[in-house]
Computed example of a mutant assay.
Amino acid sequence: MSKIDLSGLRTAEQKAAESARIEQQRINAEARAYLASTDWYVTRWRETGQEVPPDIATERQAARDRVIDID
């Protein structure tokens, strides 16, 4: 009788956890990309004192709030 390799099988819970992890990685990447693209506002503020526009500051905080360390 041949043996069947079941080592690659995953439970529904494992699949759901993997999907959630992948989705959070996507969210993290998107949020970090936004932060990187707007870092210059913070640099300008620190170097010249010119304030970061309120809408940018609000969205940067929202982006930081979306990032969850999953490693």
Rank of each mutant, 00 (worst) to 15 (best):
Q61A: 14
S19E: 00
I56P: 04
Q25K: 11
W45G: 09
S7R: 11
W40E: 14
Q25D: 11
D55A: 13
R66H: 08
A31C: 11
A20Q: 07
M1E: 08
V52N: 10
E18D: 11
Y34M: 14
R10L: 05
R10C: 02
L35K: 14
T11E: 06
E51C: 01
I4N: 08
D65W: 01
R66I: 10
K15E: 09
Q24A: 03
I68D: 11
R60M: 15
D55Y: 08
L6W: 08
S37T: 13
N28A: 09
K15F: 04
I56V: 15
M1W: 04
G49C: 04
D55F: 05
Q24L: 04
R26K: 12
R44H: 08
A12Q: 08
L9A: 07
A29C: 10
P53T: 12
A57C: 14
E59S: 09
G49M: 02
S2L: 04
A20K: 03
P53C: 09
W45R: 14
E59D: 13
L35T: 14
R10N: 12
K15C: 02
R46V: 09
A17G: 02
G8I: 00
R60D: 11
E30S: 13
L35S: 13
Q14K: 03
D71E: 14
S19F: 01
R32Q: 14
E18Q: 06
G49I: 03
E47K: 15
